[in-house]
């Protein structure tokens, strides 16, 4: 198989996830112009940041006039999960030339991680996997940018989309993402604590409530992990 074959295989492997990402890019572009960004700024955000949930939150916070440090702190917290992805793929790529690791570092979204990590596990981190990654990257980045542009054009055609209830689209999107994770009781505990915390702390300055409620959720999840283990040891003597 030539490099070109691996590149195409990489693009093809990304296809199902591209279909899933398309509506989110469309929605992001639409929300960005309705939140007051120019078309170029909305496109620039997709091109520079390239992280769906952080971008959604970013435009929402920008529109609500939040301070810059809080916006950046929120970006940091919401994207912390990428550290986990970075650590997971590290053993397979640590011998790669630097420029390929730079490419991977920029492209390591949730979707790319899912596809690329599977490839690493099944085929290892040889030169063919580098071309596979390039295929993944072109497909994902291209889809994200193209769907953002479509969304921006759509948003400019139909002004005042908030009348269409589009601000709820973010709630629907994030609730759907959270819902798929709620299969473990520790995740449910994390969600309940974060939600309750957000309600109780509502209205704190600089949106600090968001950060504190998130931390409460993480701690609750970690504590809930220990619950069943503890009951077992108590029963066992």
């Amino acid at each position: 198989m030539t490099n070109r074959h691996h590149l195409f295989a990489g693009m093809l492997a990304m296809l199902p996830l591209m279909v899933g990402v398309l509506p989110f890019g469309l929605l992001f572009g639409t929300l960005a112009v309705n939140a007051g960004l120019t078309g170029w700024q909305g496109f620039g955000m997709s091109a520079i940041v390239f992280a769906g949930s952080a971008q959604f939150i970013g435009v929402t916070l920008l529109a609500s006039g939040v301070s810059v440090p809080v916006l950046l702190a929120t970006t940091l917290v919401i994207n912390l999960r990428h550290v986990l992805y970075s650590a997971s793929v590290q053993p397979g790529v640590q011998h790669w030339p630097r420029r390929w690791r730079w490419l991977l570092s920029f492209m390591l979204t949730d979707e790319l991680f899912a596809v690329f990590n599977l490839r690493l596990q099944n085929h290892g981190g040889g030169a063919d996997t580098r071309w596979f990654l390039l295929g993944n990257s072109i497909a994902m980045y291209g889809t994200w940018l193209a769907s953002t542009v479509l969304g921006i054009v759509l948003g400019q055609q139909i002004p005042d989309l908030s009348h269409w209830g589009l601000e709820f689209a973010m709630v629907a999107t994030f609730a759907a993402i959270v819902g798929t994770q709620l299969t473990q009781h520790s995740m449910v505990a994390a969600a309940l604590a974060a939600g309750a915390g957000a309600m109780l702390l509502r209205g704190m300055p600089y949106k600090l409530d968001l950060i504190l409620a998130s931390l409460a959720g993480i701690v609750a999840g970690l504590l809930a992990e220990r619950l069943p283990a503890r009951t077992v040891t108590e029963v066992q003597p």
Partner: peptide
């Protein structure tokens, strides 16, 4: 964070476990 420095970094296990809850916690909040 891990891809660029190569093999010099290791993630503490507690941090790794905590990271799993970040998306659910932040998005719910």
């Amino acid at each position: 964070s891990f891809v660029l420095p190569g093999d010099r970094l290791r993630l503490p296990p507690l941090f790794k476990r905590a990271l799993r809850y970040v998306p659910v916690a932040v998005l719910t909040a």
